[in-house]
């Protein structure tokens, strides 16, 4: 019973929630609002950003930043859909939602590796 895989997905959900709540807003404000408004001056120049995201630590950070909130979404969406009445296809929903998060994580890993 304890070997149920639920703790793993709940852990990813929790970790993704922390990132979505604390880190994602900072990135949205910096790159989505302050940057376009000209508040960061030369900080967002192509060469500088490329050099920054080419560093392995930044790559790992960006991977966590993208992947974990995807699993957060997957867990929420899975339970929302089940609670909306698709209880009978529970397994399929779990497979589709976590599968989507896994695909998104793999794609982001591929993009980050190639930088």
């Amino acid at each position: 019973m304890r070997k149920s895989s639920e703790p793993v997905f709940w852990f990813l959900f929790g970790a993704g929630g922390v990132i979505a709540a604390f880190l994602a807003p900072i990135h949205i404000v910096l790159t989505g609002i302050v940057g376009p408004a000209g508040g960061l001056e030369s900080a967002l120049e192509y060469e500088r950003v490329l050099a920054l995201v080419s560093h392995p630590v930044t790559k790992l950070y960006l991977f966590m930043l993208i992947s974990l909130p995807l699993f957060h979404w997957a867990h929420r969406f899975r339970f929302t859909v089940v609670d909306l009445g698709l209880r009978a296809s529970k397994r399929g929903i779990a497979f589709a939602t976590y599968g989507s998060a896994a695909i998104g994580s793999i794609l982001s890993a591929l993009v980050l590796i190639r930088l």
Binding site: R2, K3, P7, V8, W10, F11
Partner: peptide, 12 residues
């Protein structure tokens, strides 16, 4: 309870 079960799971 979820947290302690998850901790147990990873420890096991």
């Amino acid at each position: 309870a979820k947290l302690s079960t998850t901790t147990d799971w990873f420890r096991d």
